[in-house]
């Protein structure tokens, strides 16, 4: 099982944080462009899901899966978006994202008075804690290739 990369977007679509662990295929465009592309796609999927759903869905879009990887999507009521790409075997990534929000984002960004909100996260402690959380997760087993 592998975790590939993580995006955090603000309510307005600013890329707050990006990090990657096992990403073999580069997109070939700059990080900013890639973030815009990613956000645009998620925005479209969200409205697509809510329009096309035959029933009232409480949570809306949760994840999608290709033959190679799964994209997990977690959005808070405040509009913060957490996106995690894993391989297809990782089922519990959603809980991991919730944990990331609760135990790392809330603690080390919201409670840090020196962190500007809705701007890319600079705090080194936050970066460290994110890495720590994912590396101790059972989903994180980097296959050395």
């Amino acid at each position: 099982m592998t975790i590939h990369n993580l995006y955090i977007f603000s309510k307005t679509g600013t890329l707050l944080y990006y990090t990657e662990w096992n990403r073999l295929n580069k997109s070939g465009i700059t990080k900013e462009e890639e973030a815009k592309l990613m956000y645009g796609m998620l925005f479209s999927i969200k409205s697509f899901v809510s329009k096309i759903s035959p029933l009232d869905s409480k949570e809306g879009f949760l994840y999608y899966k290709t033959s190679k990887y799964t994209l997990h999507y977690f959005e808070t009521p405040s509009g913060l978006k957490f996106i995690l790409n894993t391989d297809n075997a990782s089922q519990t990534a959603r809980e991991l994202l919730q944990q990331l929000y609760r135990e790392v984002y809330l603690e080390y960004v919201i409670k840090n008075p020196l962190c500007q909100l809705n701007e890319p996260i600079q705090s080194e402690l936050f970066k460290m804690k994110v890495d720590e959380l994912f590396k101790k997760s059972p989903l994180f087993l980097s296959r050395s290739i």
Binding site: L114, S123, E124, L125
Partner: peptide, 18 residues
């Protein structure tokens, strides 16, 4: 303790105000 870790010098300059 939400601001900085021991192995980084980040935010040290801003700490007096806290």
């Amino acid at each position: 303790d939400k601001v900085g870790a021991s192995n980084s010098k980040q935010y040290l300059k801003e700490s007096p105000r806290l």
